[in-house]
Design a protein around this nucleic acid. Structure first.
Lengths: 201, 201
DNA sequence: TCCGCTGTTGGACACTTGTGCAAGAGGGTC
DNA sequence: GACCCTCTTGCACAAGTGTCCAACAGCGGA
């Protein structure tokens, strides 16, 4: 294997772990899988990460933080608070991202057994909530939304989305993909005292 | 080990699996764990269940179906639709049932890798939704609730609950346990066109 | 050209996993 | 007492797990 400096190699490991996790899920990803995907030896993985928990946490962080950044960017580019909210919903549930949400499912379940993964998913969940809370506060300040408790409203909006997405990804057939976003949008409209259908989701 | 007939032994295995899953989670429960908890050999487990997937599915089913029965009973005993809804919320989130919800987390995540577990969690999720939908329909018929789409409303109510519970169990600190029920109750009040605080959750 | 640093190897280690199976034991029936 | 059916054992099997480490290789600087 070609030599790399520490930073590049760490990156390569995380990328390889992600490629495997995408196929098998976070919980089923092993050191040897990662090494093989990278085309190197398994010892190399442990040269950079003390435990497998750390590898998985880093891989999960890469996806979730990227998604968050992408979404925050789309939100920031929106013309008004309503558009920002719509941008959030659209970015949250891209049609082909079942595997990414499966990563969340694995992270939440494995949190009980893997401390590093748990810390990462907690941090990122908080960051997503903060993003939504920010959208709401902006809308309230601009006089477009009415919401007595933006923090709580943000948690509720995120939670319906998570709860619905969970059904879509884990059970596929029970809820239609389109309903997921539409229904979460409806909850958001009620939270912010918008007319039903205002967001057009 | 004392001899048992097929039914009793199957029961004993499921109970043992549950005792282990309660401590370690569904995903981390092994054949040998189950055998040890039962005080027997590991071969015995496979005499009754073809695969480990089947054991876990049966164990999960025992808890989730019991909870459902208990909740359905409390709901049926309620004096009016509002009380039925409150009974549902109370039964859904007992203070000491973090381990039970961790089972759900494991089931959802493992659904991608274990067909039997997936089928079971799908079936039970649908049953829970049906229960809530029934409460709503009864309330609408009695003229106490107003709800244009009981099926969708039921999914939304269950999903907020799941999404919030998930944060409580996986991350513990980010959401207060009391807020979980109160917030889900608020969403339900809006779904059914009840005055805010009507349910008193 | 040689040296030393550091990235990299490949396998050892000690377990653990689900599964399959020949052999044995218990209890009821004749 | 003998028989048989069924429950039960205990281990073999092959594969896989995370972790660790002595040895090696390649590159930059002297």
């Amino acid at each position: 294997m070609a030599r790399m400096n520490a930073d590049r190699r760490r990156d390569a490991i995380v990328n390889a772990a992600l490629a495997v996790a995408r196929r098998k899920g976070l919980a089923a990803t092993t050191v040897r899988d990662v090494a093989e995907a990278m085309g190197s030896s398994s010892g190399l993985v442990h040269h950079y990460f003390a435990t497998m928990d750390d590898v998985l946490a880093a891989a999960f962080e890469r996806v979730a933080a990227d998604d968050l950044r992408r979404t925050a960017y789309a939100v920031a580019a929106a013309a008004d608070p309503e558009a920002a909210l719509v941008a959030f919903f659209r970015a949250y549930a891209p049609a082909d991202a079942d595997w990414a949400f499966q990563l969340w499912l694995d992270a939440w379940a494995e949190a009980a057994r893997r401390p590093a993964l748990r810390a990462t998913s907690e941090r990122l969940n908080l960051a997503w909530q903060t993003l939504v809370e920010g959208i709401i506060r902006d809308g309230v300040q601009a006089g477009r939304f009415s919401c007595p408790d933006p923090a709580a409203a943000a948690w509720r909006i995120i939670s319906v989305l998570d709860g619905l997405a969970l059904q879509v990804v884990a059970h596929e057939t029970v809820i239609a993909r389109a309903d997921m976003v539409a229904w979460a949008g409806l909850v958001a409209e009620r939270e912010l005292d918008l007319g039903e259908g205002t967001l057009g989701l």
